[in-house]
Design a protein around this nucleic acid. Structure first.
Lengths: 121, 121, 121, 121
DNA sequence: GTGGTCTAGACCACG
DNA sequence: GTGGTCTAGACCACC
């Protein structure tokens, strides 16, 4: 569990959890079949409420990234590399679509965005 | 007042107002010295509460984009084109910094981002 | 009429007028018997509404600093130097009483206030 | 919550709240990490609207004096004594600069101000 | 439980 | 006419 939680962030904690874990799964850092820690243990380690962890796990399951076996634990779902890549790109593109709307609202051109992106990255 | 409000959006209404108006000011669509519509009239047109408009206007004033004269109205502040460009870039870079964090968390490279960006834009 | 009006100020315009003229009277810059300009002319010069000037003049009259002769104009009241000094001190003390409340609320001591005052003055 | 609200005051209620709480924080009466009462409870106790308390809290957060954690509460920010002193003096000096302008407009000298101040304090 | 947002409607001061 | 403030009450998300 290599997770960083920020209470000051505007993002809800459960979403921070969800985003970081889903990223780790799609990047391959958390391998298929890997067993996530029990929610109570995760809650203790991350110093957040059990409810919060539960909510993040539920969203991961709803996205098909993990599956829960009652009494056993939560396991990272089985994916091929291709599937992971496809899902990753889907997420990125979705986010990017919303980001570009913001840039466009200020009249920024594609070339300008790329220019600025090279500086920031 | 060329504004689009989405009640379904996760963003609060006052922030949608703030972002769209600030973009229009920095793009030059709302010229310096321009008098914004009275908050009550704007509230009617946009079909939102007066207090919501007020909150957006307050944030615009706090950012120095408009200035309010009690009993007279709210006026777009005086800026040179250079100042507008500088402020716009500041906003864009700030947003972009947060966007790239998301991309990076999935291990996406700069080249990949640019590739995807070209499709989306 | 040596008056400076600030639309950006948080103080209402009529009060800015009132304060500056009363100060000039009590300092002796506007001598007893001096005839203030007609409100319409003053409004034009200061680029404010007639109503605003009227309100300031009314407050000056209510304070006994000027008196109006219908059809003739508004005249600075007759005061001895002693009376002016007494009125000035009254105003200053009243203001100071409220100012010190603010300083005290932060736990600032008299010595500290004097210390800081010497820097600022 | 040792707060006094005056409905008769010319100052808006939210500003009275802001000033009193910021003074208490900078004086150390409200320690760093202290959890302010929930806005609804504070509204009940002070007999003002929730929205009024909220506005005061927002200004405190904007000044960096408190930080809000959604669903948890509002906490006094962490400051060293030096930081508090510096912020306090900044506020006092700013206020004093405006106060002295008033005194000067009546032609009062520094010595006179100090003289009067000793009486008032 | 907490804060975040929004509404509808009101009263006031200023110009 | 304008903005400035305030109220009472509501619904939501998060923890």
């Amino acid at each position: 569990m290599n997770i960083t939680i920020s209470n000051a962030s505007e993002k809800p904690i459960y979403q921070q959890l969800y985003e970081q874990i889903s990223a780790q799964i799609l990047k391959g850092e958390l391998a298929s079949g890997f067993c996530l820690p029990p929610i109570r243990q995760a809650a203790l380690e991350l110093r957040v409420s059990v409810i919060t962890v539960k909510k993040a796990w539920e969203e991961l399951e709803r996205s098909g990234l993990i599956h829960t076996v009652t009494g056993k634990g939560c396991f990272v779902a089985e994916f091929t590399s291709d599937e992971k890549l496809r899902m990753r790109n889907e997420l990125i593109l979705k986010q990017m679509a919303s980001d570009t709307l913001y840039y466009k609202s200020f009249g920024v051109t594609l070339d300008e965005v790329i220019e600025l992106l090279k500086k920031v990255y």
